[in-house]
Nucleic acid binder design. Structure first.
Length: 414
RNA sequence: GUGGCUGUAGCUCAGUAGGUUAGAGCGCCAGGUUGUGGCCCUGGAGGCCGUGGGUUCGAGUCCCAUCAGCCACCCCA
């Protein structure tokens, strides 16, 4: 049997690469304008790093990581998300020694052993952005403004930003307790999964999709009522800043994110066009995590955006399929040799030039030029070689043709 | 990890109650034009019918397993 790709891992073929390039260049432009600098970190880290940062009880750590021991017996895992590695690098390279905030972005593959479906792969790619060493609500707002701006630049308008605050270690316990009591008293109306969640992570009951749980969640206590003064002020400031920036967003009191480390602000960019996978980007504040990993006690916030999911929402554009500037159609040995050399010459000047490597009929060469989407074709046959001229044909403008000197083809193209 | 659906040419799909050489459209190649693409016409190449077993005189068609894809749950990007 022929060897197949590993399940959930897709090839990005040339036809689709244009869209990815579009996403990545737009992202670099936007991130750059907002002062973010690129960082690249390994996709393989010690397992412990993820276990400690993402949270032992999360699905990701419990059952979705690609973990294995290497030849020296160390337990390594393919990164399921980008934040942990960046924080590790930040601490290890003592980036915190210089004054913050540090604005970083990275992009690349992540790995989660889930069952693949639309918009969900085992190897997927994220644009990931982090602000390290900054507590202020401005960075929360700035990040969301930037995300919104990026989505606009990508031509995505049907995406809604959802915002919530999860409070902090000072105020969340009371909320959690209230939630627990509320659901405990109505336990029989929860789905099986949620009954289990009550003991593992009661907050997750809030965004369960089962009807009964949803109804109940509507009437459950909301975090906003439990936020301590600092958290409330922070939350209010963030939302005021978003309004000041004219960013449309919706309060999502039941938005809970899967990773343990989030505090205060969490947000998600959602769409209705991706089936069950409605999030194209998600993030939040994780103030305690850096210290947890042995770094300084600095506030941090970040988000990740799924490149595949963005790509699913973006329509193809003709300019991503641009063809060569020139196709040289040569007939006869002498002309073919000339074409070979001429093509190389033009390519050295940075022009995209194609030609047929086989002696094919003019018709076949023309067809090929058309298929490639060549802007122009230079026809050189035996009589042309003798006369030192070629027929330059414009493939777009109705096939107009004119005679040009073979002495300086580059000039004729200008 | 759980459940449902699907798997036939490069692509999108037909394929009658199991019966001889498996079809179409698009794409590809060639010719129609001694040297001119896109449209049209003609011809051609291309298929271990996902894979492995089984039932049967006979399996693309039925059964089982397996792999992959899709959809939902779960989870999230």
């Amino acid at each position: 049997m022929t060897i197949q790709a590993v399940r959930g891992m897709k090839d990005l073929l040339p036809n689709d690469a244009g869209k990815w390039r579009f996403i990545e260049t737009k992202a670099r432009e936007v991130f750059g304008a907002f002062g973010f600098q690129e960082i690249r970190v390994p996709i393989l880290e010690r397992t412990e790093l993820f276990a400690r940062s993402i949270g032992q009880a999360t699905d990701i750590v419990e059952k979705e990581m690609y973990t294995f021991s290497d030849r020296s017996g160390d337990s390594l895992t393919l990164r399921p998300e980008a934040t942990a590695g960046i924080l590790r690098a930040y601490i290890e390279n003592k980036l915190h020694a210089s004054p913050g905030p540090h604005k970083l972005f990275t992009l690349g593959p992540m790995f989660r052993h889930e069952r693949p479906q639309k918009g969900r792969l085992r190897q997927f790619h994220q644009l990931d952005v982090e602000v390290l060493d900054d507590q202020g609500p401005q960075s929360d707002a700035e990040l969301m403004v930037m995300l919104t701006h990026l989505l606009e630049r990508l031509g995505l308008t049907k995406i809604v930003l959802k915002v919530n605050s999860l409070g902090c270690p000072d105020c969340r316990p009371a909320f959690r307790q209230a939630l627990l009591e509320f659901f405990q008293n109505r336990k029989d109306r929860l789905c099986e999964d949620c009954q289990r969640r009550l003991s593992t992570n009661p907050l997750r009951v809030l965004d369960c999709k089962a009807e009964g749980c949803k109804d109940l969640a509507e009437r459950a206590p909301v975090m906003a009522d439990f936020l301590c003064a600092p958290c409330w002020n922070h939350f209010k400031a963030v939302r005021d800043l978003l309004r000041a920036a004219n960013v449309y967003f919706e309060d999502a009191p039941r938005l809970v994110r899967g990773l343990d480390y989030y505090v205060r602000t969490t947000f998600e960019a959602v769409t209705g066009d991706l089936g069950a996978q409605n999030a194209v980007a998600g993030g939040g504040r994780y103030d305690g995590l850096l210290a947890e990993l042995g770094g300084p006690a600095q506030g941090c916030i970040g988000f990740g955006a799924g490149i595949e999911r963005l790509a699913l929402l973006i329509e193809d554009r003709p300019e991503w399929q641009a063809g060569p500037e020139l196709f040289i159609a040569a007939l006869g040995e002498e002309a073919r040799l000339w074409a070979f050399k001429q093509a190389l010459e033009l390519r050295k000047q940075g022009r995209w030039v194609e030609l047929s490597h086989e002696a094919k009929s003019l018709k076949a060469q023309m067809r090929r030029a058309d298929k490639l989407g060549a802007a122009r074709v230079l026809i050189v046959g035996e009589s042309e070689m003798a006369a030192g001229v070629g027929q330059l044909k414009d493939m777009k403008a109705g096939g107009q043709q004119r005679e040009v000197s073979l002495e300086d083809v580059a000039q004729a193209l200008a």
